[in-house]
Nucleic acid binder design. Structure first.
Length: 570
DNA sequence: GCCGTTTTCGGCCCGACTGTTTTCAGTCG
């Protein structure tokens, strides 16, 4: 698929045009196109051949033509034209905080800056300070931006970000000045990784609150501190992270929460919808002329626009506003709907807890069932089970089940899909199990699509685990044609997994939604290697919610007797 | 560049903070 490549080209064009001072909205159009194409699950080449590109909102005549040009010739004239006289190295510098397109253009025109090295040089020799509207402070801020840029501003995984946000909220709430504090932004939308942590605060004395905030333990640097806004870089035991707070009066909390939760794209659409109705939406409320007509609660903001409240997880401008207008919002699956976990490890392979300890932990979560899926023998690095040890585990589970009548303990395996495409255990053994979870753990570049498809064809296989194998910010995932794998899953009625391990979250939101649209059932599993990991279920549910999944799309929301039928368990 | 039951032209979300200025431009979210 050329989707990613094309999205990157449009982003590059947007950068170049922005740098050159092209009309803001034209730049925006390219950025929007890039985002849409990046999120597309269909092959752009196929869409183009079917002449369907123009049906996608945000892709018009101009962009469609450029895509066609690129797919046919491998080139795009517009890119070469936009890049005329500038280099990739120069545009990279736009990622430096406090250095925007205007300033970069000026340094390039006046001082001949072409790359990071040049930029550092003009700071060193003092020539940057001499530019129009440039002063010492601005240069200092650009230097700080460079430091962050060089450090590589990594995005923080959702689980870590939640912990940090929790610490900040606790600190804030200790102050009497503060009535309320809520994590918002991408954190509230439960994106898989978080850039900055945004926290909305209500209280009366903004200035004092910001002061208190910037004095929090661990603050390395204060980026901004005004009457209603504060921004700091916070030291953590991993990477430093930016934390922003925004202070509003109690009666504007809903409007501010709506605004601060985003996404930006969602808000742009909400605000333009308001405009059509002669209203104005800002973080201070919804206004008709100068009169406030909503804003105390988030629901009130949506209501005056004629919309039901929209759950934060789907506020990405991926059709949620249109669905809300048509009163067709999904009733999203919730953590409380989950009745079991179908992918759990024990100390029989590479995990820390025993069968019984895991069973007891599952009972505490009020689960009706759990399935043990230890590794198979090919996963020797994970102390995978041999046939003999699997048999022993099966017997142990049978024994355990006798003393636990309030939970069903399912006999399963996470069986490796071998390089040949065969499974690591014979059909005879697999057929004795309640749940077979198949996954690829090796040979990431060896015909992964074909191997997965042949695993799906095996009648003993129930679930395909972590279908792309990606590890967030660490490993891109297998070389796999997911579209084809999903088609097979659909054909053979197999279940696809959302692996809730925070570094995996695999399938992701976009592909899970695609799977749902194809009518494929999903299992949300933690892949727990210890009791504490069972809590990861909430991250998996968040992915499901971001993918618009409803309770009936997720197999482990089923009652035991229904799951039993689905899996044909004796 | 995209888009359209007010438009095929003229809009396109809205505001805070900072630094460098004497009223505003640039950056960010």
């Amino acid at each position: 698929m050329k989707n990613k490549e094309i999205a990157e080209i449009f982003d590059r064009i947007a950068d170049a045009l922005e740098f050159k001072g092209e009309q803001f909205f034209r730049v925006l159009a390219y950025r929007k196109a890039a985002r849409i194409i990046e999120e597309l699950t269909d092959d752009i080449d196929v869409l183009n051949k079917q002449d369907k590109l123009r049906e996608i909102p945000g892709i018009g005549e101009g962009i469609a033509k450029k895509i066609d040009e690129f797919l046919k010739t491998g080139k795009m004239k517009k890119l070469a034209e936009a890049m005329q006289g500038i280099s990739k190295d120069l545009l990279e510098l736009l990622n430096i905080q406090n250095l925007g397109p205007k300033t970069l253009k000026l340094t390039s025109d006046e001082l001949g800056v072409k790359n990071l090295k040049d930029l550092k040089r003009v700071i060193e020799d003092g020539s940057l300070t001499k530019l129009f509207r440039m002063g010492e402070k601005k240069v200092e801020n650009i230097q700080k931006g460079i430091a962050l840029f060089e450090h590589g501003k990594a995005r923080t995984p959702i689980d870590r970000a939640l912990e940090i946000a929790d610490t900040v909220v606790k600190y804030l709430k200790k102050s009497r000045l503060i009535a309320n504090a809520t994590p918002s932004g991408s954190l509230r939308r439960m994106k898989e990784t978080i850039g900055d942590i945004d926290i909305l605060v209500s209280g009366k004395n903004g200035k004092k609150i910001v002061d208190y905030f910037t004095k929090m333990p661990g603050v390395m640097q204060v980026l901004a501190s005004g009457d209603t806004k504060g921004s700091v870089i916070l030291e953590t035991d991993l990477e430093p992270i930016q934390v922003d707070i925004r202070i509003v009066p109690e009666k504007q909390y809903g409007a501010a929460l709506q605004y601060f939760t985003g996404s930006k794209e969602h808000n742009v659409k909400i605000r333009s919808l308001a405009k059509e109705k002669g209203l104005k939406v800002s973080e201070y409320g919804v206004f008709r002329d100068k009169k406030t007509i909503a804003g105390k609660t988030e629901a009130s903001v949506y209501k005056v626009l004629g919309l039901p409240w929209i759950p934060p997880e789907i506020r990405e401008d991926r059709g949620e506003i249109e669905a809300a207008l048509a009163n067709k919002l999904p009733k999203l699956v919730e953590l409380e709907d989950i009745k079991g976990d179908l992918h759990i490890h024990t100390n029989n392979s590479d995990a820390v807890n025993t069968l019984e300890e895991m069973v007891n932990a599952a009972i505490k979560l009020s689960y009706e069932y759990i399935a043990f899926a230890d590794h198979s023998k090919a996963a020797f690095y994970a102390n995978g089970l041999t046939e003999e040890r699997l048999k022993r585990e099966i017997n142990a589970i049978a024994k355990l089940q006798i003393s636990y009548n309030n939970i069903r303990i399912l006999r399963g395996i996470e069986v490796d899909v071998l390089d040949s495409g065969k499974l690591d255990f014979s059909d005879e053994i697999l057929s004795q199990l309640d749940v077979v979870v198949a996954s690829v753990h090796q040979g990431f570049k060896k015909r992964v699509t074909e191997r997965m498809c042949s695993a799906i064809e095996n009648p003993n296989v129930d679930i395909i685990a972590h279908p792309t194998g990606r590890l967030i910010s660490r490993r891109p995932g297998y070389d796999v044609n997911l579209e084809k794998v999903l088609e097979y899953a659909k054909k053979y009625h197999k279940i696809m997994e959302i692996n809730a391990y925070p570094d995996r979250l695999d399938l992701n939101d976009i592909w899970t939604r695609k799977a749902k649209e194809m009518g494929i059932k999903i299992a949300i599993n933690t892949d727990a290697h210890g009791i504490a990991d069972l809590e990861w279920m909430k991250f998996g549910v968040s992915v499901a919610r971001r993918a618009w999944l409803e309770k009936q799309d997720v197999v482990n929301t089923l009652k035991w007797k229904d799951l039993k039928n689905l899996l044909n368990i004796r």
